[in-house]
Design a protein around this nucleic acid. Structure first.
Lengths: 140, 140
DNA sequence: ACAAAGCCGAGTATTTTTATCGGGATTAGA
DNA sequence: TCTAATCCCGATAAAAATACTCGGCTTTGT
């Protein structure tokens, strides 16, 4: 029941980008160093983030990445979905998937996974990057 | 963000045991056949379930497994924990673990994972095997 | 021109998952 | 008492997913 390192690193990196949102693009090397994440792995993580429209890249010297939208318009669910695909505890209840389970209506456990999925989505979609910054400010 | 086949099979098998709770022990072969799960894999799944006190085994001919408690006293969270360990989207917020994250208080994302974990636990702990039977009875 | 940065397909190493195997221990019933 | 059914369990194997690494290309500020 874990998210992958990809997802975890992605969220951490995005939080950093939220933190410095008004300072212009930040190069990945900087984030990698700050968060102790392999630079090359982080590169791989930012490809899907960009393709999902969550970050904008600036190429060339003085380039880097910047959030494509303000921190309060990007939620953690967006990030997780971009990196790990649809949220689903089991495949047959994946978000956006037609009810195509071969076990169909005889499946007794489907409801459980649907409730779990909905609950997970709800939490993750409710927390924006701005919220994350606030949350940690609160607890300090 | 998936549970493993082990967890999924385990829940399915336990639902079957709930269904036939008053018929005495059921051999694993029967469950395996009915749910299209490898018998030997199912054996592996039932070891931890027994050790967690969720099922009772009856050895020898005419033996099998039976729920150790009535269906309304076993919830899905118990089963998942027995099979997959503590519920936690990332390791550092695992249930029952001291706050030992090396990143400690500088970790901005911890709160997110805690909220997700709590939400997942709450849902899973709230659904008993009896509920699962009812849920599917409802939707028929 | 050159260095700093992103872009990206391919490859590899490690870990986890999903089983499978083979034999032993227990017990109901013939 | 014999046998077949059944659980018990450590070891191993195969497959899949994960977590990176590599190498080279493209873009751009100075």
């Amino acid at each position: 029941m874990r998210i992958s390192a990809k997802g975890e690193y992605g969220v951490r990196a995005m939080v950093i980008l939220a933190l410095v949102f008004y300072d212009g693009p930040v190069p990945l090397r900087e984030i990698a160093e700050r968060e102790c994440i392999s630079y090359q792995f982080l590169e791989q993580i930012f490809l899907p983030l960009r393709r999902a429209g969550l970050v904008t890249s600036v190429r060339g010297a003085k380039g880097g990445y910047i959030l494509a939208k303000p921190p309060n318009e990007i939620n953690v669910g967006d990030i997780i979905r971009a990196l790990e695909g649809p949220i689903a505890p089991v495949e047959c209840v994946a978000e956006g998937k037609a009810d195509s389970c071969s076990r169909g209506d005889i499946c007794l456990t489907r409801g459980v996974w649907q409730r779990l999925r909905d609950s997970m989505s709800e939490v993750l979609d409710d927390i924006t990057l701005a919220d994350v910054l606030c949350m940690s400010a609160d607890s300090t």
